[in-house]
Amino acid sequence: MRRAEPWLVVASAASSLAILFLFLPLAALFTMFDPRIFAKVFLYNPVFYRVARAAMLTTFEASGLAVALNACLGIPLAYILARKRFRGRGVIESLVDVPLLLPHTVAGIAVLCAFGHAGLLAPITKPLGIYIEDTFLGIVLAMAFVSAPIMIDTAKVGFASVDPELEMVARSLGASPSRVFASITLPLAIRSIAAGAILSWARALSEVGAILIVAYYPRTLNVLTIEWFSMYGLPYCIALAVPLALVSIALFTLLRLVIQRAHD
């Protein structure tokens, strides 16, 4: 009988522990989930459901808008970074990734410093009546700031993977640059862009640190979870956490499908 190699035994044991470590908290979350508390929180107790439903709506609306903002501003930037060579390109690429590396509270403070009532852009935003402190806009900006790098980086990889010769041939056949972008570049990079949007949305949904600094109100599900943890304890937090976990798992599944189709 063949004896297993010692390093393989150790690696298998470590792998099993790693899988257990990653799986156990998620399994525990669903095991400890109490449907009665969930019903109370979201369905029949107005004290809870008014707040919980509003927080859920705020979370999904704000994260959706943050992804839309990232797409509108980030996709053109990703295209330029993937296709054009210019001085300072490396600096811009590094700057794009900075929000990923900042501690979340620092990201929140940075957003306040830029767009807050005493921020750099205050001379422009104040006369226009634009405020981000404790506003829905503040949540959108905080979410967009922390999730934009993921959208830009993923879209950039998608654009970079499109063979420039395809674009050249399309132009020689008579297509304008915008037509080439719409008919060749974008369709070929769309799966990367979709993956970027999904990852960016997941990141925006999970944000709490920056939002706590910029806009505690209106409360998102994450902020409400922290609040209820100190007020009502774990069971009520689980009722709030499970829908978020389910959405995250659904997003992850969608991402896998997008990536799988890209490879087919």
């Binding site: 063979d163 010769e165 395809l166 050249m168 041939v169 132009r171 020689s172 008579g174 297509a175 060749i184």
Partner: peptide, 16 residues
């Protein structure tokens, strides 16, 4: 390029 009325067949063929 689009205003020159020239078509190209590159080495890679570059089919869409």
């Amino acid at each position: 390029p689009e205003a020159r009325d020239i078509a190209i067949v590159p080495q890679s063929y570059a089919l869409f």
